[in-house]
Amino acid sequence: MRSPRTRGRSGRPLSLLLALLCALRAKVCGASGQFELEILSMQNVNGELQNGNCCGGARNPGDRKCTRDECDTYFKVCLKEYQSRVTAGGPCSFGSGSTPVIGGNTFNLKASRGNDRNRIVLPFSFAWPRSYTLLVEAWDSSNDTVQPDSIIEKASHSGMINPSRQWQTLKQNTGVAHFEYQIRVTCDDYYYGFGCNKFCRPRDDFFGHYACDQNGNKTCMEGWMGPECNRAICRQGCSPKHGSCKLPGDCRCQYGWQGLYCDKCIPHPGCVHGICNEPWQCLCETNWGGQLCDKDLNYCGTHQPCLNGGTCSNTGPDKYQCSCPEGYSGPNCEIA
C-alpha cells in the first residue's frame, strides 16, 4: 500500500473562530452545534475503483483480482440542504470535509470508535433544520502531484436527524465497494433544542441566579424568581408596597416606613400621643390635641387635680377649673 497522505478536516480554523465568538458573545450567535460522521468499515474485495480499474497495477489473469497494490482509501463528505432527488452538483451549503487515508481495500474501525482519523466534524452556527442531504465518497489517494485521485464508491442519503448523543448507523451496500458509517448531530455546550438555537448558560451573578434543565429552560436558584432569576424573594410577610430586597430573605423599608415587614409608618418627629397611617403624620389619640398630640384635652380625667370633693371642668388643652364644695378653696380645693 502506498504511503498515506493526510487530509485535514475542512473548515476547522473557521469552526474554532466561530466557537470563540459564540463563547464571548453568546447572544450574537443564534445557534451552535456540529454534524459528526465516523467511518466504521470498508470492504473493497478486489481493490477496484468505481470505473472498474484497479487502484494500482493490473489484474491477475486467473481470479481477475487486482494484484499490485491496495487502495489508499480516504473519504470526502458533503452536507447540504434536503433534496428529495439528490444531485451531486451544487455547493455543500451545510459544510464539507475529508479524512486522511485511513486504510486499504478492506478495514474495520468499529473497535477504535472515537479515533479522530476516521471522524469528520462539520460545525454550524445556524439553526439546525433537522432535514438534510449527505454525500459520502470513498477515494483512492494517488500520492502523486500529477496523477489525480480516483473515486472508489459514493453514497447519498436524505433524511431527518435531531440533536442527540446517540449515533445513527448507515450503510452503502451497492457498487464495487461497501462501507458503513455513523452520524449524529450534537449541540455545543449551553445550546439546546432541535435547532441547537436555545441558549442557556448557568450563572450566579448580578445578571441572574439559575441553572439549566435538559431542555435549556432556566431554573431559578432558591430565593430568586423572574424570567432571568434576578429578582430576590423577600422575607415572608414583607410589604410588597413599602418593602423590597436585593438579597433573598431580606426586607428593606422605603423612606418613611419601618418594622420587620416594613408595614409600620414613621410618625412625625416628636409626636407624643399620636399615630400615623402614612409617613410623617401625627393623628392624635382620644383626649389629646396639638400638632404633636402633646396637649391633654381631658386634664381632669387624666390627672384628677381637684381635692376634697371638688368638681373638675376641662377648660382647654392642659387647662381645668375646680368647683370647690363649701368650706374649701384654692385652685385644687386644697385650702380648708
Rank of each mutant, 00 (worst) to 15 (best):
residue 229 C to F: 00
residue 79 L to I: 10
residue 155 A to S: 11
residue 39 I to L: 02
residue 41 S to F: 13
residue 213 D to H: 04
residue 292 L to P: 08
residue 75 F to C: 01
residue 306 C to Y: 01
residue 12 R to C: 14
residue 116 D to Y: 12
residue 234 C to W: 14
residue 232 A to P: 08
residue 265 C to S: 00
residue 141 S to C: 10
residue 245 C to Y: 11
residue 108 N to T: 15
residue 206 F to I: 06
residue 272 V to I: 15
residue 228 E to G: 12
residue 144 D to A: 05
residue 229 C to W: 00
residue 166 Q to K: 10
residue 286 T to A: 03
residue 317 P to H: 08
residue 291 Q to P: 11
residue 248 P to T: 08
residue 117 R to P: 13
residue 153 E to V: 11
residue 230 N to I: 13
residue 132 Y to N: 00
residue 110 K to Q: 15
residue 198 K to R: 06
residue 233 I to S: 14
residue 153 E to Q: 04
residue 165 R to L: 14
residue 69 D to E: 14
residue 330 G to R: 06
residue 314 N to T: 09
residue 98 S to P: 05
residue 5 R to G: 13
residue 321 Q to H: 07
residue 149 D to A: 14
residue 243 G to E: 03
residue 91 P to H: 10
residue 208 G to V: 08
residue 132 Y to F: 05
residue 115 N to H: 13
residue 166 Q to H: 13
residue 6 T to M: 15
residue 229 C to R: 02
residue 174 T to S: 05
residue 144 D to Y: 08
residue 33 G to S: 04
residue 136 V to L: 04
residue 319 K to R: 13
residue 28 V to E: 05
residue 67 T to P: 12
residue 106 T to P: 13
residue 121 V to A: 06
residue 83 Q to K: 10
residue 66 C to W: 15
residue 329 S to P: 08
residue 20 L to P: 02
residue 11 G to V: 15
residue 254 Q to R: 11
residue 110 K to R: 09
residue 334 E to K: 09
residue 303 H to Q: 07
residue 107 F to Y: 05
residue 192 Y to N: 03
residue 281 Q to H: 07
residue 187 C to G: 05
residue 193 G to C: 11
residue 150 S to N: 07
residue 142 S to N: 04
residue 255 Y to S: 09
residue 209 H to Y: 03
residue 133 T to M: 09
residue 332 N to T: 06
residue 262 C to F: 00
residue 105 N to S: 10
residue 304 Q to P: 03
residue 207 F to C: 11
residue 171 K to T: 11
residue 276 C to G: 01
residue 123 P to H: 03
residue 169 T to M: 14
residue 250 D to H: 02
residue 311 T to P: 07
residue 87 T to S: 09
residue 56 G to V: 15
residue 167 W to S: 00
residue 205 D to A: 11
residue 19 A to D: 02
residue 127 A to T: 09
residue 3 S to P: 15
residue 244 S to T: 02
residue 122 L to V: 06
residue 157 H to Y: 12
residue 239 S to I: 09
residue 220 C to W: 00
residue 321 Q to K: 08
residue 93 S to N: 07
residue 67 T to I: 14
residue 156 S to C: 14
residue 181 Y to C: 09
residue 127 A to G: 07
residue 120 I to M: 07
residue 178 H to Y: 04
residue 63 D to G: 12
residue 278 E to K: 05
residue 181 Y to S: 00
residue 76 K to T: 10
residue 240 P to A: 10
residue 158 S to T: 05
residue 260 L to R: 09
residue 95 G to A: 10
residue 316 G to D: 11
residue 275 I to S: 00
residue 319 K to N: 10
residue 80 K to E: 12
residue 149 D to V: 02
residue 102 I to T: 13
residue 46 N to H: 03
residue 115 N to S: 01
residue 87 T to A: 12
residue 32 S to W: 03
residue 312 C to R: 00
residue 52 G to V: 07
residue 144 D to E: 04
residue 126 F to S: 13
residue 64 R to P: 15
residue 301 G to V: 00
residue 290 G to A: 05
residue 225 M to K: 08
residue 238 C to W: 13
residue 154 K to N: 13
residue 38 E to V: 13
residue 315 T to I: 14
residue 318 D to N: 08
residue 47 G to A: 01
residue 269 P to L: 07
residue 226 G to V: 12
residue 251 C to Y: 07
residue 217 N to I: 13
residue 307 L to H: 09
residue 274 G to V: 00
residue 148 P to A: 08
residue 276 C to W: 00
residue 182 Q to H: 13
residue 62 G to A: 15
residue 74 Y to F: 14
residue 49 L to P: 06
residue 212 C to S: 04
residue 190 Y to S: 09
residue 300 C to Y: 01
residue 106 T to S: 08
residue 110 K to E: 11
residue 284 C to R: 03
residue 40 L to V: 01
residue 201 R to G: 12
residue 63 D to V: 12
residue 224 W to S: 04
residue 211 A to S: 15
residue 313 S to R: 07
residue 48 E to D: 08
residue 233 I to F: 01
residue 51 N to T: 03
residue 196 C to S: 01
residue 169 T to R: 07
residue 314 N to H: 05
residue 225 M to L: 11
residue 290 G to R: 02
residue 80 K to Q: 09
residue 314 N to K: 00
residue 162 N to Y: 08
residue 229 C to G: 04
residue 188 D to G: 06
residue 253 C to F: 00
residue 251 C to W: 11
residue 144 D to N: 03
residue 75 F to Y: 02
residue 256 G to R: 02
residue 35 F to S: 00
residue 271 C to S: 00
residue 103 G to A: 15
residue 113 R to C: 06
residue 255 Y to N: 08
residue 148 P to R: 04
residue 131 S to T: 00
residue 104 G to S: 03
residue 53 N to Y: 15
residue 317 P to A: 13
residue 22 C to Y: 12
residue 64 R to C: 13
residue 159 G to V: 12
residue 13 P to S: 15
residue 249 G to V: 05
residue 315 T to A: 09
residue 178 H to L: 04
residue 109 L to R: 03
residue 159 G to S: 02
residue 246 K to Q: 10
residue 119 R to L: 09
residue 62 G to R: 13
residue 116 D to H: 13
residue 274 G to D: 04
residue 147 Q to L: 08
residue 280 W to S: 09
residue 101 V to G: 03
residue 257 W to C: 00
residue 13 P to A: 00
residue 11 G to W: 15
residue 40 L to Q: 07
residue 199 F to I: 02
residue 133 T to S: 02
residue 150 S to G: 10
residue 229 C to S: 01
